[in-house]
């Protein structure tokens, strides 16, 4: 007798489960139905690429979405190279890049029928940062290179205390790394002990919690928890970057496939930085607006 009742019970449980599943499916399907009418005016802009340009893109995206409620903008921060790749594959509308496109990427793009058009949205300096307790105030580009290759391994050698230098770099997948590689390393290899971190924020955090560390971040990521070093005697500020005095500076790009159609959302988006609001945003996040130099 008992067996039968348990069987019944399990059957009820099973029915319950099954009906739940079915209900879930039904709800999921129904969700889609009323949408048919509304789809107009909706547009999706997919942005992919550099983590350095990421804050600008995110801020622009939120600002733009607050103006145009029908537009959905997604931002991925997966590295400049990935941005280029996505643009070439047609998987993103706008590619954020903190370096210019490489020849190879251009060639691949043209072959696929994509014409990359660069929009310079802002300027950025790469600041060398150390812990504020570090007495070192200044480095030359050559010294910075020697630190990163491992030839200088102790702060003593650049006028600091006797502490081993903890060398921190951006991950090799970033445009920041490539710019630093080009402007500072000049084709030399970074030492083996270099730690690689995935983003500007992570580097700043590592440096602010590690007394003997040195790292490099975009201008927008400097705050009072870290100390920016003078490089070749120039402090990285908006003015020195804009005037070209600061040696480690670069433009930040957004790439589109061809020049976007005038009046389209994409066009409005990539020209946002030209207007006063866009410049204010760029300034607020800590980059140098293109109109100030």
């Amino acid at each position: 007798m008992k067996k039968i009742s348990t069987a019944e019970r399990s059957v009820t449980i099973a029915r319950l489960g099954a009906s739940l599943l079915v209900a879930g499916l039904a709800v999921a399907c129904l969700w889609g139905v009323p949408g048919q009418a509304v789809a107009q005016g909706a547009a999706t802009i997919v942005i992919d690429g550099s983590t350095t340009v990421g804050p600008i893109a995110k801020a622009f995206a939120e600002y733009y979405m607050s103006l145009h409620s029908g537009v959905n903008i997604t931002v991925s921060e997966s590295g400049s190279g990935n941005g280029a790749k996505s643009l070439i594959n047609g998987t993103c509308t706008i590619a954020d890049m903190s370096r210019f496109m490489k020849k190879k990427e251009f060639a691949a793009a043209v072959e696929k029928g994509v014409t990359p058009v660069a929009h310079v949205v802002a300027m950025d300096g790469i600041a060398m940062i150390v812990h504020p307790s570090n007495p070192v105030k200044e480095l030359t580009v050559d010294q910075a290179r020697d630190i990163y290759t491992g030839r200088i391994a102790n702060w003593r050698d650049v006028g600091g205390p006797n502490r081993k230098i903890v060398v921190i770099s951006r991950d090799t997948n970033s445009g920041t790394y490539e710019t630093f590689d080009k402007l500072v390393m000049k084709k030399e290899r970074m030492g083996n002990a270099t730690e690689y971190l995935g983003s500007n924020g992570a580097i700043r955090q590592r440096v602010q919690s590690t007394q003997a560390a040195i790292g490099y971040v975009g201008l927008g990521f400097i705050d009072r928890t870290v100390k920016a070093l003078l490089v070749d005697g120039v402090l990285p500020t908006r003015n020195t970057v804009a005037s070209g005095q600061y040696p480690i500076a670069r433009p930040l790009f957004m790439f589109t496939n061809g020049y976007p159609k005038l009046g389209s959302h994409v066009h409005a988006f990539v020209t946002l930085h030209l207007g006063p609001k866009g410049q204010e945003i760029i300034d607020a996040i800590g980059f140098v607006p293109v109109t100030s130099y």
């Binding site: 999921a28 399907c29 969700w31 889609g32 139905v33 009323p34 949408g35 048919q36 509304v38 789809a39 909706a42 999706t44 997919v46 990421g54 893109a57 995110k58 995206a61 939120e62 979405m65 959905n72 903008i73 997604t74 931002v75 991925s76 921060e77």
Partner: peptide, 24 residues
């Protein structure tokens, strides 16, 4: 699938399948 910034999926606005094709 994952992106760092994007609107919440909105099944009411687009058709079901179109929503499924968006990153989130």
């Amino acid at each position: 699938a994952a992106v760092s910034v994007g609107k919440a999926l909105d099944f009411a606005k687009l058709q079901f399948w179109q929503t499924c094709l968006e990153a989130t």
